[in-house]
Structures are given as structure tokens and as C-alpha cells.
Amino acid sequence: MVLDLLASGLIYSSIIVLGSIGLSLVYSIANFANFAHGDTMTVGAYAALVTFGAVGGLGGTVLGLPYGFFVALGVGIGMAALVAVVTEKFIYEGMDVGSIGLLITSIGIAFIYRAIIQMGFGADFTRYDIPAMRPIDALVTYGIRVTLQDVAIVASATVLVVGLHLLLQYTDLGRKMRAMADNPDLARVSGIRTDRVKLWTWIIGAGLAGAGGVFLGLFSRLTPRMGFDLLLIIFAAVILGGIGSVYGAMLGGVLIGMTTQLTPILSELGAVLPLVPDTWGIPIGIEYANAIAFVIMVAVLLVRPSGIAGEVV
């Protein structure tokens, strides 16, 4: 059972990681907590839904997913990025209300995204038109119930995260972004065009969020609330990892994703751990998985607001 939970934790984590990287990037470079980030994920998921409905499967499949789905994934990423850039250009950019004002504005933006999606698609849940798959037989013998599609989610997320890592470490843009996250004023006086870098940050952050939204829709289902419901979990991951640190956000995403999925173990801890009686356990149910993540978040804010990987301010 533990292996199975670890596997589903890994899948869930890769979705959280995609969301948390973008949130962390925007938090450090645009300097506010973007409450619309979750709904940016929803935008990506629904854009992919429309695209996939239009292009269809396009013949063959990779890892249980039709080719058309990857086209849809691309459109979802692009659409999320486009929506975020348009919002930045028309709303956030011209505002002079400080980071708290921007935070409150982003809540309004979140509601607007969600309301428009709900108008178009209704409040009910939908799924991508991809047949559900049987768990991989070779792994079932170990008690792990994972489908090929789940493997595809983890693999795609890994590709995106590695791509971002290469971008940040080895390209000019990546270096500028890191410089700006570190110290925006210093970056500016060094001749970096900070507004251009900021725009790229929005594109990358929202694009990754869009991908996360598509995978979330594939992993469970699509509803207009899906992103907003996940937002606090993503915040927990970002804060745990340390705001402003991309690698911290990745680590935080994995930790929070694993924690929420491993909650069922808590009540049977004795059976898993050595040296304690088998009947021993922390009596807390799966329904408190999210609550545990939020409590961890508050605890991190109190004890070490800079998170695991953030700099101590």
C-alpha cells in the first residue's frame, strides 16, 4: 500500500510542482502573491479540452495518450501564458497600489477567469475524451496501481522542469531572471531590461501552470473550481520551499504533494514503521489531507518564513 501511495504522491506532486514554480517565479519577480494562479491552471485545462475536442486523436498514441492530446497540451500552455500576459499588460502593469493592492486585484482576476469559464462550460465537471486505462500489469504485482497515462504525466512534468532548469542555468534570459529575483534594483542598474524579463516570467510561470492544469484535468477531472481549489495547496508548497526559489518550489511541491497523498498511512503508522506496535497510529483521516498541508504552511511561515531553500531575510 505504501508503494502505491508513494506512486500516486509522485503523480500529484508533479502537478503541484508545475503550479508552484510559476507561483514562486511571479511572487519573486512581480513581487506579489498571485491569487489568480490557480485559475490560470484552469484556463490551460479548458483550452486543452477545446483543442482536443477539435483536433481529435490524430492517429497513434504515446504512453497511452493520443498525439492530439499533446497538441492540446501545447495549446493549453500557450493559452494560459497568453491570458496571463494580457492580464499583466492591461491590468497589473498600470497599477500603483503596492503588493497588497496587487494581491487583492489578483483575487478579482481569479474570479473573472473562473466566471468566464463557467459561463462557457457550465459548473459541472467534464473529462478529456481519452479512454481510461488499466493499471500497468508489471507494477500491479508490487501493489502499485499506475496507468501509462500517469507515467506520461510524470514524464512530461519532468521534461518541463528539466527544460526550465536548463533555461535558468545556461541561457541569458535565465541568468537575467535569477538576477532579477535576487535584487530587482540591482538588475535594473546593471542594464537588464527588467520589464521584458518580467513579461517572460509571466509567460513561463503561466505556461507551466497551464501544463499543470491540463495534467490535473487528466489526473482527476475538469471543473471551473479546480484551480482555485488547488491554489492553497500550491501556496503551501511555495512557502515550504521558500518564496522566490524555483528549486525550493520544486522541493516544496514534492513534499506537499507526497504529504497529502500519504495521509492514509498516518492512521496505520505502526504497521509501516519498525519498533512501534502495529496498532499504533495517528488517528487522522484522508479528509484532513489538505488541512495538514495548510497547517504545515502556517508552521513554516512562523518558524522559518524563508522556507527551506529561501534566503534568510
Binding site: I91, G94, M95, T105, I107, G108, R114, Q118, A123
Partner: peptide, 19 residues
């Protein structure tokens, strides 16, 4: 569906006010 209109209105009011 009219139900999301309320959400939209709330969102628009927040943005316009802050702007």
C-alpha cells in the same frame, strides 16, 4: 448560465476599484 455572472461582477468590481 447566469450564476457565474455574480462571480464575474464581483471580480470586475474588485479590479475596477483597485485600478
Amino acid at each position: 448560465d447566469v450564476a457565474p455572472l455574480r462571480l464575474l461582477l464581483i471580480g470586475v468590481i474588485i479590479v475596477l476599484l483597485m485600478r
